[in-house]
Write a protein that binds this DNA or RNA. Structure first.
Lengths: 127, 127
DNA sequence: GTCGTACATAACTTATGGGTTATACAACCT
DNA sequence: AGGTTGTATAACCCATAAGTTATGTACGAC
């Protein structure tokens, strides 16, 4: 229902490398805002903004520890995004690069018909 | 290497519901621009812009059939995005309610590097 | 060549995003 | 109370995104 909106904000949040790096950091455990900001050549308010984006997307939650607002990762939207992508898994799961090659080959065969019965044998041809 | 940039453009492309709907349509097979535009209350140039975004992100490719430019889905960036999300799979695959415990467990394991023979003992695992 | 169709591009508007600096707020310390 | 640390908010700048309408271009039909 609100799935679409969630995917919107989830993917939008994940589109920024700083925010992905923050998530990567948080995957190692909770961290405060300053800890999260430290690796970046960017002001603290900029990080706070990124954290707000992540929080609004439901990708992190925040606690309280004295003055600190420790952040921790919240995986539910990631699971949802992953689930969405799974709808397309069949498009790459049977070796995508080779499918492309196969298509090229077929076109070449159609065009020139000079590659008669050659079969592809590169690797891992499933099915 | 250019993985980060690819993820940027992939997630950014997926953040728009119109573009996700276009991909959903293309998962059923090739379609022309007009065919893709038809379901939306939006001008044709707007759709063309969305298609350009998808194309630049590598999510679609286009052929030629007379005046038509049939679009087809290209799954490689989707696979990459899915792979990225897989890094976080452990955060949702063992029941959200126990996420906290899981984190504690992981931290404890990292700190002590003690690989006990115990399998996912959800509570009271602190020794 | 001329016309119609399918699509792309241009030019423009408005909204949003990501960054800045300066300042305010909140919680602890003494 | 006053100072320090940690974080949030405000006000602003600039770039880009998403839409519009109008126009241009590529191709096939006649």
């Amino acid at each position: 229902m609100t799935t679409a909106r969630t995917l919107d904000s989830t993917f939008a949040a994940l589109a920024d490398p700083t925010r992905r790096a923050i998530l990567a950091r948080l995957s190692l455990g909770e961290a405060s805002v300053n800890e999260l900001a430290e690796p970046f050549a960017m002001s603290q308010p900029a990080i706070s903004k990124h954290l707000k984006v992540l929080e609004l997307a439901g990708l992190i939650s925040r606690g309280r520890d004295a003055q600190r607002r420790p952040c921790r990762i919240e995986a539910a939207p990631l699971a949802q995004a992953s689930g969405w992508l799974d709808n397309y898994r069949r498009f790459w799961e049977h070796s995508f690069a080779q499918l492309d090659d196969l298509l090229e080959e077929l076109k070449a065969e159609q065009a020139a018909a000079k590659k008669s019965t050659k079969r592809r044998n590169t690797k891992g041809d499933k099915t």
